[in-house]
Design a protein around this nucleic acid. Structure first.
Length: 273
DNA sequence: TCCCAGGCTCTCT
DNA sequence: AGAGAGCATGGG
């Protein structure tokens, strides 16, 4: 962290490699970061609201204290990982390497597991603009207000609701899945934090017990919420890309960091679409 | 308008 | 075990 400076209530990340705000915050892994007309991104995670911008090659964060940064945001933005090394590992596959270089500013966000769980339950058979809308309404209706933004509601809050209560967010058939997830988490049947420590397969099996959680949603929760970067969510876009460019198989050189490869491929094919 | 969306459940072979 | 319909809602 010797390239991080704290000055005048702002945090400067200097000479950071592989961190592009637009790529990282709007690549489909998280749904609550928004840019303004000046390129300032704002968002809230774990009830903490911050703003980020790029300035002379630095990432500048406002709204976070030094301890907030060290205890939360550093891990949230996965700043301890060397993405250049990962991209170098992917160079054995020409197409994957091209995708990685086209989206080399993406970092995998380490989101709150419960937010990732609900977000990707909502994502099923849905499109990204509408997913964002449903999640916004979920937070505005049931999340705690933190200054100018709403925190993601906690499992205990959602566990007390019924499908009818969720009608205002217009999530359709997914409402019952959100409630089942919230009740299993709030009731202690599923301990999301423990999934970070379990191995990938064991953690995945636990998530699959939640209604509305299948292989793809489970892998998204493991990748974006539990730090399992070997998870490789297969959505319709990725399935098409695997068939078209990779012979239907995940490239061998992606082993151990398949989730990062997945995100590069997803961004690459969608920005070329 | 009409197709489809970062899928999953349920049912029927 | 594998295939297919149905699902709520609305963006493009």
């Amino acid at each position: 962290m010797n390239n991080v400076f704290f000055e005048n209530d702002k945090i400067y990340i200097r000479n950071v490699k592989n961190f592009d705000l637009a790529q990282t915050l709007d690549c489909g892994q998280a749904f609550r970061w928004k840019p303004d007309e000046n390129g300032v991104w704002s968002g809230i995670a774990k009830s903490r609201f911050i703003e980020l911008k790029e300035q002379n090659g630095d990432i500048v964060i406002s709204g976070a204290s030094k301890s907030d940064f060290e205890e939360f945001w550093f891990d949230y933005f996965d700043l301890g990982r060397d993405y250049s090394a990962v991209i170098n590992q992917f160079s054995e596959n020409k197409t994957l390497y091209a995708a990685a270089n086209a989206s080399s500013g993406i970092r995998i966000l380490r989101q709150e597991p419960f937010e990732a769980l609900c977000s990707f339950i909502i994502s099923q058979n849905n499109n990204i603009p509408r997913i964002k809308g449903i999640i916004d309404r979920l937070c505005e209706n049931f999340g705690e207000r933190k200054g100018v933004a709403y925190a993601f509601p906690d499992a205990e809050t959602l566990a007390r609701l019924t499908e009818t209560d969720l009608a205002p967010i217009r999530s359709g058939f997914r409402a019952k899945y959100i409630i089942d997830a919230a009740r299993k988490v709030a009731g202690g049947e599923i301990d999301l934090e423990s999934l970070k420590r379990l191995d990938y397969e064991a953690a995945r099996e636990i998530l699959l017990k939640i209604k509305g959680v299948g292989p793809k949603v489970a892998d998204c929760v493991l990748l974006y919420g539990c730090g399992h970067i070997e998870a490789f969510p297969k959505d319709v876009w990725i399935k098409r890309a695997l068939e078209e460019y990779f012979g239907g198989e995940i490239p061998a050189c992606a082993k151990g960091a398949a989730g990062i490869a997945q995100q590069y491929i997803f961004y690459y094919i969608r920005s070329n679409a």
